[in-house]
Amino acid sequence: MKDIIKKINAALFAFIVFYLGFIGFRAFSSGYPFSLICYNCKSCDSVCVIGIDPQGFMAASIVDDPDIYVYVTNYRIYAGEAEKLDPDMIIQTHDRKLSISKALRDGTVTRDSEVITYKMKARHAANICIECAACERVCPVKLPILDVVKGLKNKESGAGK
């Protein structure tokens, strides 16, 4: 193997190891290091009536970013409100999934229409979460999911914990 190729390969392999360490570091810096334990089994997803995927909250704390998109597949919201919250929020309408801004532009929905969400930012999902704790009850490793939800509520975009 040529020398330069070896160096590229070695650098990229080192990047992979660094990437794993970086994930661990971010989880610690978010203040929720237990989020690394998440099995990603989606047991929590199956019990949320609003259709929130609570594993998304764990993912948000692993990467220490409240602006990642998580599944929220059964929350009803008025289109105008959704657009004000986040123009890139993904909604479901007429068997399609598209951003609320696109749906309003196309005329698929009006501002007074009620739409069902599909994906939204983790901090918005935390705000609509009613903290029923059904997800905590079914978690196989008993993660304190509500701690993360409460931390994400009313969080400003991009701010660390």
Binding site: F28, G31, Y32, P33, F34, P144, L146, D147, K150, G151
Partner: peptide, 10 residues
């Protein structure tokens, strides 16, 4: 100990 004290508990 780092995890215990670094963790944000509500």
């Amino acid at each position: 100990l780092i995890i215990h004290f670094g963790r944000k508990a509500y």
